[in-house]
Design a protein around this nucleic acid. Structure first.
Length: 570
RNA sequence: GGGCCUGUAGCUCAAUUGGUUAGAGCAGAGCGCUCAUAACGCUUUGGUUGGGGGUUCGAGUCCCUCCGGGCCUACCA
């Protein structure tokens, strides 16, 4: 039995995520976790909310709440929505946890001892009115290059010139509009990633089987310009993990906190501690310390392409730099973006479908199936309502749902609600078994290598094979002259429903559970031997005709949703 | 500006790393079936692989160039 540690990029606390965020990391991670569990492997699947930083503080202020309370409430909300999508996290943690505080401070201490932290004095814009230092993007002013009046502190949106906030003419705070900004000198800690460049380069170069999206982004950062740059890991904020050198105060850094890019990935480790402390498991180090049992763990990370630099460089630098035997990631599966109907999903403009809204209009399985079978693996992908309706109606309602329906209803009308007896398998049945065996092995291969779209296509072909079999065997015809044979065919078809439930469960867990329940079986064992698996429900076994497994999406609904999600949320 | 990814049938995607006649699903057309959610099955139409040039016995695949789409470029995560 193999052991799989699986993490999904941790979503930012600031609001409800859209479908693009979901398919970018959490959903494919869940698919992989469910598959590995179904194969009987030991899995620890972790995720969390990323709670620190300026956006969280501002969102809390806007909501009129203390930031800690805001984060606690948003965490609960995100947790609830994740459960609605059946994301099977073993633990959904928080980067603000006490465990992460200790661990982040511990790593900083170790890195300092290793000589990988240096102090840098730099100038930052401070807003007395807001009572805070302002990140570049929260400062606007007139572009010195083109005269555009709403240029941001990091870049002018009009002429695209890279800017420094101090370049702006008449700079102002985008939070309060205050113009009394002043430049202050402040000291920050930098992680000396540049010292680890060769080590990181060698590590990345050894990962020849990673998605090209992952390695190309990493290599660009390693080799661009002067090579890998050191990164600031502290900020002048209130909300965050206080800077400490291990458990000791850090002279000169008393009022500062670590920056989210430093503490967020460490939460992957802390989440395992939280998992144990919550009473869900034990011996968390067995998953994370190669000196304490994690040497045989396979660690896989899932993320959108925007997160690749931190997972390929910054976090590995943190782990390697600590000099301690922490588990390094074995495989990074990254995704492109999902667009919405010709443009991008937009949180600020309410364009596109958000996770809470999606669950209001349809069950999770519809979204899971469509998103996964159209995952943006090789390039950005696009969500349109026409495609969504056409694909889900065809795949889920017609091919799979109707199969369940036609088989169970036929059996009920001819043999009653028990698996019929008699008859024997012939050539058609052998051919079906052979095809299913071939396709199942291909499906397993795609799932192992996380080729999500190909896995979905293979699964669909497995469903189609059932319909082809029914058409050629035609138990409704054989019933007229040979009821024994019709019984054998129907018995096989009923067993296909259980078979489909088992192999489909990573994609559509609720429908799979409903199919298992209808077949009144608990036997969810993975079909090692297809022939044996299709005999799991013996003659005489009772079942019931289920409710419609997947109803169709109507044209009226499609048009209504098109309008509703075009922009301006609520 | 620099870099990366991408362009294949009306739509969404494949193509074993240069090897026969470029394949699937959807949509369209025809036929069949009648167990089923007007569902299912079979057959079938459809491509100058964005344009042009080159290397090669052979190019969707490699090189050059032009055109289109997207992303990154380090303080939004």
């Amino acid at each position: 039995m193999a052991r799989h540690l699986i993490t999904s990029a941790i979503p930012y606390i600031n609001g409800i995520k859209h479908l693009g965020n979901l398919i970018g990391s959490q959903l494919p991670a869940d698919l992989f976790a469910r598959y590995q569990r179904a194969r009987g492997h030991e899995v620890l699947f972790l995720c969390a909310t990323d709670e620190h930083g300026t956006p969280a503080e501002l969102a809390a202020a806007k909501a009129g709440q203390p930031v800690a309370q805001y984060c606690a409430e948003m965490h609960e909300l995100q947790s609830k929505i994740a459960a609605g999508f059946r994301l099977s996290f073993d633990h959904f943690g928080r980067s603000s946890s006490a465990q992460n505080h200790r661990l982040t401070q511990h790593f900083a201490g170790r890195l300092a001892e290793a000589g990988l932290i240096r102090e840098v004095a730099e100038k930052q814009m401070y807003s007395p009115t807001d009572g805070r230092y302002l990140p570049d993007r929260y400062i606007e002013g007139t572009c010195p290059n083109c005269g555009f009046e709403d240029a941001r502190g990091d870049q002018c949106d009009n002429c695209t010139k890279q800017l420094d906030p101090t370049d702006l003419i008449n700079p102002r705070s985008t939070i309060s509009g205050a113009t009394d900004l002043e430049e202050r000198e402040t000291k920050h800690l930098y992680l000396a990633q540049s010292q680890m460049r060769d080590q990181l380069q060698a590590w990345i170069d050894s990962k020849t089987d990673w998605p090209i999206l992952t390695t190309s982004i990493a290599k660009k950062w390693l080799n661009d310009g002067d090579g890998l740059q050191d990164r600031g890991i502290t900020r002048d904020l209130d909300w965050g993990i206080p800077v400490r050198k291990g458990t000791e105060l850090w002279p000169g850094m008393e009022d500062k906190v670590f920056y989210v890019w430093f503490d967020a990935p460490i939460e992957y480790i802390a989440a395992a501690q939280e998992w144990q402390d919550a009473g869900k498991g034990s011996d968390w180090e067995r998953w994370w310390r190669t000196d304490k049992g994690a040497q045989d763990v396979t660690y896989t990370q899932f993320m959108g392409k925007d997160n690749v630099p931190f997972h390929t460089l910054s976090f590995p630098a943190t782990i390697l730099g600590s000099g301690e035997p922490w588990k390094l990631v074995d495989y990074i599966k990254s995704f492109n973006y999902l667009n919405y109907d010709g443009g991008q999903f937009s949180t600020s403009r309410g364009r596109g479908v958000f996770m809470d809204q999606a669950l209001e209009i349809l069950p999770a399985d519809y979204w899971r199936w469509w998103l996964l079978s159209n995952a943006p693996e090789s390039s950005d992908a696009e969500f349109t309502w026409d495609l969504f309706q056409a694909n889900t109606n065809k795949d889920l309602a017609d091919v799979l749902g109707n199969f369940v329906s036609r088989v169970t209803k036929f059996c009920r009308s001819k043999f009653g609600e028990t698996v019929p007896e008699g008859g024997a398998w012939g050539d058609q049945e052998e051919a079906l078994i052979k095809e299913l065996d071939n396709r199942l092995r291909a499906y397993e291969g795609f799932m192992e290598s996380m080729e999500v779209r190909k896995a979905a296509a293979e699964l669909r072909a497995i469903w189609v094979a059932g319909n082809e079999y029914l058409q050629s065997a035609a138990p409704w015809s054989t019933f007229k002259e040979n009821q024994q044979q019709s019984g054998a065919q129907t018995r096989l078809a009923l067993n296909l429903i259980r078979f489909y439930a088992v192999v489909s469960s990573p994609f559509i867990p609720d429908a799979a559970a409903a199919m298992m329940s209808a077949m009144k079986t608990q036997d969810a064992s993975w079909p090692q031997d297809v022939k044996a698996a299709l005999g799991a429900l013996p003659a005489g076994h009772a079942f019931e005709v289920p409710e419609v497994t997947f109803r169709k999406i109507t044209d009226d609904e499609r048009e209504e949703w098109k309008m509703r999600f075009a922009g301006k949320r609520d």
